[in-house]
Design a binder for these strands. Sequence first.
DNA 1: AGTCAATAGTTTATTTTATCAACTAATTCC
DNA 2: GGAATTAGTTGATAAAATAAACTATTGACT
Lengths: 152, 152
Amino acid sequence: MAETHTSSRHRLQSTDLATEIEFLMARARALGTSKANEQLAALNLKARSYAVLALACSDSRPSQRELAEFLSLDASQIVALVDGLESRGLVVREPDTSDRRSNVIVGTPEGVALYERAVSVVSAAEGKSLGSLSETERDQLRELLARVAFEG
Amino acid sequence: MAETHTSSRHRLQSTDLATEIEFLMARARALGTSKANEQLAALNLKARSYAVLALACSDSRPSQRELAEFLSLDASQIVALVDGLESRGLVVREPDTSDRRSNVIVGTPEGVALYERAVSVVSAAEGKSLGSLSETERDQLRELLARVAFEG
DNA sequence: AGTCAATAGTTTATTTTATCAACTAATTCC
DNA sequence: GGAATTAGTTGATAAAATAAACTATTGACT
């Protein structure tokens, strides 16, 4: 019999690459994002539009520039994402009264309603992805990642 | 004065999204990958070709299918990546004697030499990315991520 | 042995995402 | 007031993700 799926994975898992945090993050994220996207598809969302919607529906009133920086995306991609959500009536561009160059992106009631459904979907998916971790371990992971993600 | 870069980040950092592990991984990885790519550019590599080279230069003798599964990439992308490395004389496709459909991807001496330079470059970049974490914390993070990345 | 299903790799096409330059309008700095 | 900077937008181009179709095996089954 040829080598099984699982045994080959174990073989590669003992390489140096498999101990690199960068690589582990890429792999963990690929798994998680694909699970999340699967579930979000039912709401006609993806991980990226979900993230924009989440910030729009928070009370943080982000500008597009802030969305770009926070989500590690180019400003032009934010335009496209906001266009998509706005055309569905989920968010609006509010002119920033203190700086007329700037828009504040805010969720509409429909946007908030959809966001709330999306949150439960995403957190269920996250629950599956992190199934092998205890609550304490999840908190640890969250805290360590936050320090890496927001360093500087 | 308008809101500063840093204060807006703090404002968004207190949103629900900012506590989602999925999001934190995406952001941490974006930072890390861009730093790694910057450094790898001098060797004419990127994170992805580096990963393939690393596995080829290990003693694990991966097939292309195994590379695809392990790196969460489509088989057709592996073709392109191996083509690129092979045309530079860094890896070779060795026919698998026990299954003639399958290639084993192996690093050449030149490939190994370049890989060794790349490892030090990448680990320096990782050091910067994880600058705020102690050794113990890095090990913790590595172990938690590994469990998420290789669950199931 | 012979058929049939499944697998490894490849090619090609399509879509999505990333990157970057150019432009407008508004703001800030001097 | 004028120069430099910034937020948003558009458009072009390159890189990456996704998926179908095809070839050459191999494996399973009878």
